[in-house]
């Protein structure tokens, strides 16, 4: 995944089954963002892999004042890349576990 300057990681162990998963997001390189992010620290949130889109969460983070509107796409992409990796890993590992 491209380095967007925004890091998104799992905030819990992924059991491969739950649709809702805890993620943690923080700014690693503020220079890559257009707007100046509030000095947030790490933002932990729950994401529903089946029902929600990264764009929804990114917009909510902008509405909450964590990021500037001009960075909503970068935040959404960062979340999307991590979600894609989680789903990819589930597809590969889950059949083996079963």
């Amino acid at each position: 995944a491209e380095d967007t300057g925004v890091r998104v990681e799992l905030a819990e162990e992924d059991d491969g089954q739950k649709s809702s998963i805890a993620l943690r997001l923080w700014v690693e390189d503020p220079k890559k963002l257009k707007g100046k992010p509030k000095d947030n620290g790490a933002i932990e949130f729950t994401f529903d892999l089946e029902k929600e889109t990264p764009d929804d969460v990114a917009q909510e983070m902008v509405d909450a004042g964590f990021f500037h509107e001009s960075d909503v796409k970068i935040v959404a992409k960062s979340i999307r890349d991590r979600v894609a990796l989680i789903l990819w890993r589930r597809e590969r590992i889950w059949p083996i576990l079963q």
Binding site: W26, G41, A42, E44, F45, E60, M61, D63, F66
Partner: peptide, 27 residues
Amino acid sequence: SSLTQVVHSAGRRFIVSPVPESRLREQ
């Protein structure tokens, strides 16, 4: 802890806490 802050937006809960020093990229 006092360092953790909870923010709600559009019904979603965001828990904000300091990023561990080890995870911040050297500027």
